[in-house]
């Protein structure tokens, strides 16, 4: 399946979904003007990828520094898709990165983790100023 790569804009994060390797990554800030325009294609691609037979392992790196409420809801939906796939036996790991001293982003990660039972969820502190 084709990779999905979108460069970051001022309002949307960089998307780097390498489906062949099973390594997916979102990084940057997310407060799109139109949540459907930005997340629509991401959901479609992810749904298609998870529906493919084979079921090799998936690694999802979330490196978001800031997002708005509809992005938060979209993330929750992504996590639910991953959780469903993991419950069906796929090996899925999520790494939630937050900058040091960004307690609210750390707490949000912990909050999301509560809904995930089959996905292997890891919190990871990264240095501030976006260097990763």
């Amino acid at each position: 399946m084709e990779s999905l790569k979108l460069p970051a804009t001022g309002r949307t994060p960089e998307v780097d979904f390498d489906f062949a390797q099973g390594v997916l990554r979102l990084s940057g800030e997310s407060y799109p003007d139109d949540v459907a325009t930005f997340f629509g294609p991401i959901f479609a691609a992810l749904r298609g990828f998870l529906a493919e037979p084979g079921g090799h392992p998936v690694r999802f790196d979330m490196e978001l520094l800031y997002f708005n409420s509809s992005s938060a809801k979209a993330l929750m939906n992504i996590f639910q898709m991953l959780e469903t796939a993991a419950r069906d036996g796929r090996s899925i790991s999520v790494t939630w990165c937050y900058e040091e001293n960004d307690e609210s982003m750390q707490e949000l990660g912990e909050d999301f983790a509560e809904d995930l039972h089959h996905v292997a969820f890891t919190l990871k502190q990264i240095p501030a100023d976006g260097a990763s």
Partner: peptide
């Protein structure tokens, strides 16, 4: 209620921005 909250919060974020 969730929909409303998301909408209100997005609007606040946009205003803040």
């Amino acid at each position: 209620e969730q929909r409303r909250l998301v909408r209100v919060s997005d609007r606040l974020q946009a205003q803040l921005g």
